[in-house]
Amino acid sequence: MKKLLKIFLIFFKIGSFTFGGGYAMLPIIKRELVDNLNWITEKDIYNYYAIGQSTPGIIAVNTATMTGYSLKGIKGALAATTGFIMPSLIIITLIASFFKRFQQIDLFQHAFAAIQIAVVALIIDIVIKMWQKSDKTRASLLIFLIAFLLLVIFKISPVFVILGSAAAGIIIQYLRGNLETAYYDYQNKDQGSDK
């Protein structure tokens, strides 16, 4: 119960400071759940974000649900998602109630224009850290560059990028001969846990 409340509060905080798409929540998730609480690893976040990107629905909500589930099952998923959504509900309801008298929209837009720039800085920092913590192989660098170029120049849907990179990952591990040894270990571990 205590953990559920904590999940709710953390995602309430994340929802209150996520401006823009799902990527904007990553720096805050990382700080709260990886650096401060050690509940998940950095690798987990990027796995969950990849799943959130390639399934139907709002990416930020998908990522929140996925992270919440990994922390405490279905209850955790619900706590994280309601926590994330709650600030939107409160803030937008307040704004919509006063909308007709609401003259200060440009104030929000000035703030948002600068926030976007801060988010760019935070994301560049995240990408650098991802690289520092990755396996730093030539294959990883190649996948990174190809994904970036496909998305920026050819505007390919992220879903295809993720599916393609999944296939690339399997092929690379197979060519390195890692797949067979991993299979062997996996099956042995399975039998071990059955006994």
């Binding site: 823009g20 798409g21 990527y23 990553l26 690798k43 990027y46 796995n47 974000y49 990849a50 990107q53 976007q116 988010v119 760019v120 994301i123 560049i124 995240i126 990408v127 991802m130 690289w131 990755s134 396996d135 990883s140 660098l141 996948i143 990174f144 560059l145 190809i146 994904a147 970036f148 496909l150 998305l151 920026v152 992220p158 990028v161 993720i162 393609g164 990179s165 999944a166 296939a167 690339a168 990952g169 399997i170 690379i172 591990q173 197979y174 890692n178 797949l179 991993a182 299979y183 996996y186 571990k189």
Partner: peptide
Amino acid sequence: NQHPLVESAFSGIRPAVAGLIASAAFEL
């Protein structure tokens, strides 16, 4: 997620996610 196929798929997905995040920064 411990399955070798899933693990190796995600080993390819993670650098692509970095590309995805970098492209979001670029668009912004």
